[in-house]
Design a protein around this nucleic acid. Structure first.
Lengths: 154, 154
DNA sequence: GCATGATAGTTTAACGCTGAATGATTTGAA
DNA sequence: TTCAAATCATTCAGCGTTAAACTATCATGC
């Protein structure tokens, strides 16, 4: 609602950037989700499969860390993937607290053929911006994501 | 996972921009939600109250349109606000299909004192970027949000 | 009037998400 | 050894979200 609040200009500017950021994220992820629905995958399920494909088997704690999601959430997403036979849980041998999540053959085939299509969709989405604009957006968003303690790393 | 996929440069660029956009949106909204929790409000509940404050009473259909949410979702959010006595439903007189949602006194007081604090939080979040950077971000995000049929209006 | 179709709201099933509580296991220190 | 703390996974309550089915109401044309 950037048009309905008449405050100081710095406030209007921040509110405006905020609402546009949310709308863009919502819009892009909605379209990405729509495409994944063809493979009967949600964005979260896709995220887990993609991490397993590119990083190898992971325990649920690591999955949560990669995807920035809570432990309870990972349990549910992996549950749903396991029901469809796309991943398999394996209790740790040395340390029985850990559960390693593996791709099954079926899961590997699905993500291997879904991933390129997903990339194509995102390239298409981002084609609303030029190459240098996409890089500019990355830099701005990275600084926002880090928060105001806009530290060091990289 | 921008670092784990080595594809064509255009693909890497788009994937990178996508992941940074999602992370930034997630990060900012998480911090905004944390602040609203002090008033026991979720972001969606805040959105409804804020729309009612600045636009006046609305029917649920209009609320859904403003907030880009489905009808079923609006029903639930308004339900939860009504349980707390922050809004009131009123069945239309002439056209009994419509339900107009009003702020109660309690709801108006809550949103009136929560909104300025929310603005302050967003200004603080956005202070990771300069004024012109915030405007740049707005413009880039607006074009992404519209999609590739990057039309006209405004 | 009456049938037909459009529209607003509600409900339900399914999934996502979090934070808090719980259980199992391991580690470390007394 | 044994007990306390830490860690991983699971469960649960609560809210958010959608799409699809359903109800009630209104509008239109016959």
């Amino acid at each position: 609602m950037p048009t309905h609040y008449a405050g100081k200009s710095g406030e209007v500017r921040a509110l405006d950037a905020y609402i546009k950021l949310m709308r863009a994220a919502d819009s892009v992820s909605r379209r990405a989700a729509r495409h994944l629905a063809a493979a009967r995958l949600t964005l979260s399920q896709f995220g887990v499969l993609e991490a397993l494909l590119h990083l190898g088997p992971l325990c649920q704690r690591d999955l949560g860390e990669k995807l920035l999601r809570s432990g309870g959430n990972i349990v549910m997403v992996v549950d749903n993937l396991e029901k469809r036979g796309l991943v398999k849980r394996q209790r740790g041998k040395q340390d029985r607290r850990f559960v390693t999540v593996h791709l099954t053959g079926k899961g590997r085939r699905l993500i291997a053929r879904t991933f390129p299509r997903h990339v194509a969709v995102l390239v298409e989405e981002m084609s609303a911006l030029s190459a240098s604009e996409q890089e500019k957006l990355s830099r701005l968003c990275r600084r926002l994501g880090r928060g105001k303690n806009a530290g060091n790393s990289q």
